[in-house]
Design a protein around this nucleic acid. Structure first.
Length: 500
RNA sequence: CGGGCGGUAGCGCAGUCUGGUAGCGCACCUGUAUGGGGUGCAGGUGGUCGGAGGUUCAAAUCCUCUCCGCCCGACCA
């Protein structure tokens, strides 16, 4: 048996971690302990659960079939919500002429360092460089200018599922890669109010999806001026807390105002006969959410997937010795699968491995519920159900499985959210001064409520001293006025954290 | 981008200091006994030592350049 401590080149496992996790460690030989080295744990989980692998090009990754199945389920959950709110999908090109990108000064400045350029077609140098899209505002706005003439053409509600590229200096699988997959919604409206409404509506869609489907609690709010999208009027975000106490921006929604409309000349003739610029929004979430799932729900045995998006919701592990037992179990399992398949994504594992090996494998890969079926169960007309989240093991009568299993899976979904919410609440503190905030950020991490006056200088000062940034100005917050944690002028509570 | 560390079989590593032609565990293959938490035994397959150049009779080992990854920090709409 290989010892995971030496396998990872460590002299010794931290004594503090050993006691609490010894039981779990016995089951897992391939993943470093979460408390020992969180970053390493994260990478181990991604690799060993076969979600993704490193690609030959720096900062790029291959999303493997299991990881992609997860992403596809996430796409479905989002896409349905987009369609339900009146949006339609379209596809715009990968390449954007440099001149388009340069039209909006703030926008260019924001993205310039991260843009990858196409300079040649074959051997011929291009007359104008082409940017590999870091986001599609400029190309989409160019097209909207052609398509929109009248107030009757509005609103335009379009979403695009695409890849984008940003030349990042430091990359992490799923969290920040050079190329990533996302969706970007781009809408155009007749009035400012309508655009603002849309911006907030889509932020709400993200919150609904992330909390209900991914079981990750988020804090919706508005970004500070310094953190907003380059070229936007206002940016909103939903912020989530990861297992190591760092925050992750899980989704953003921007009210673009008329900035882009003016630059790209997107106008319409309004009811009153006046020619006006449209009001726009854009909003997006990315494969980064896969990283969030891993960090919020994962444990020392590996991945824990929320049932709603898990590629396999229930794994059946057959157990047998003799051929006769195998046949009896096979018939029982086939019947079981037939019952469950209409309700649930179920799979049975007939590979030539020992049951124990399979238990570990499927736990590592995060399957929410395992059903064990052996000769004893066939005889008792039952299955043994084991939850991935609590490790609770209990027999279920075969007759009730059709309803008990879906109910159990739903319960896992619920309790994952409950547990994540409890963790987040336990890791949310208050601070009145920068020193207090620093202490929390150093020792426990997590979210910190602290009063802020609204000045960028104070925001920057906090970042300088503590490394924490304003994640957002939550919609739902204490409304008492307090002294700004930096300058002492009147301020109100905002949410700070160290962020990914 | 800075500091530190690493790249040797599919995975995890030893060998590098002190040059002599590559090894261990797991995985994999075959057989056999097994199978309710990573199964035992026996036999086997597999490596241009990240890449390029140099020094040398001889390079995984020494030198130069380069690519990739990890940890910490800076940066990041």
């Amino acid at each position: 048996m290989s010892d995971e401590t030496t396998a990872h080149g460590q002299d010794a496992r931290g004594a503090h971690a050993a006691a609490a996790t010894r039981d779990e460690a016995r089951f897992v030989e391939e993943i470093v302990d979460k408390d020992e080295n969180y970053s390493r744990w994260y990478t181990d989980v991604v690799l060993k659960a076969e979600l993704a692998d490193y690609a030959p090009v720096r900062g790029c990754m291959v999303i493997r079939p299991y990881g992609f199945a997860l992403w596809e389920n996430m796409q479905q959950g989002l896409d349905r919500r987009f369609k339900d709110t009146g949006h339609a999908n379209a596809y715009f090109p990968l390449l954007i002429p440099e001149s388009f990108l340069r039209k909006e000064a703030e926008h260019v400045a924001g993205f310039a360092p991260q843009v990858a350029w196409v300079t040649h077609g074959g051997d011929e140098e291009l007359e104008e460089r082409l940017a590999v899209r870091p986001t599609s505002e400029t190309i989409i706005c160019t097209m909207y200018a052609k398509w929109i003439q009248s107030w009757r053409d509005l609103p335009v509600l379009v979403n695009q599922w695409a890849n984008v590229m940003r030349w990042e200096k430091v990359t992490r699988l799923f969290l920040r890669t050079t190329e990533f997959l996302w969706q970007e919604g781009h809408t155009a409206h007749r009035t400012e109010e309508e655009a603002e409404e849309e911006t907030l509506r889509m932020l709400g869609v993200y919150q609904d999806f992330i909390e209900n489907d991914l079981a990750i609690p988020v804090v919706p709010g508005r970004k500070s001026e310094s953190e907003k999208f380059a070229g936007a009027l206002r940016t909103y975000s939903v912020e989530a807390l990861m297992g190591d106490g760092r925050a992750l921006q899980a989704g953003t929604s921007h009210n673009l105002g008329q900035h882009f409309a003016k630059v790209f000349d997107i106008t319409f003739l309004d009811k009153d006969g006046q020619r006006k610029h449209v009001w726009q929004t854009s909003w997006g979430v990315s494969t980064r959410l896969v990283g969030a799932i891993i960090m919020v729900h994962g444990d020392n045995r590996g991945l824990v997937l929320p049932p709603r998006v898990a590629p396999i919701q229930v794994i059946i592990v057959p157990i047998f010795r003799k051929e006769a037992e195998r046949e009896a179990v096979a018939a029982f399992v086939a019947d079981l699968e037939r019952d469950l398949r209409p309700h649930i994504r179920v799979q049975s594992d007939w590979r030539e491995q020992t049951p124990g090996w399979k238990f570990n494998e499927w736990e590592l890969r995060g399957v929410p519920l395992r059903l064990e079926v052996g000769p004893r169960d066939v005889a008792a007309n039952q299955v043994v159900a084991v939850r991935r989240d609590t490790h609770e093991k209990r027999p279920l009568p075969r007759s009730g499985v059709g309803s008990a299993v879906p109910a159990l899976v739903e319960d896992i979904q619920r309790s994952l959210l409950d547990r994540a919410r409890r963790f987040r609440d336990e890791h949310t503190a208050r601070a009145a001064t920068v020193a207090e905030l620093e202490e929390v950020v150093e020792e426990r991490r997590g979210f910190v409520w602290a009063p802020w006056c609204g000045e960028a200088a104070c925001e920057a000062a906090v970042k300088e001293r503590s490394g924490a940034t304003i994640r957002n100005i939550p919609f739902d917050r204490p409304d008492d006025r307090q002294a700004c944690l930096v300058c002492g002028r009147e301020g109100s509570a905002v949410l700070f954290a160290k962020a990914y």
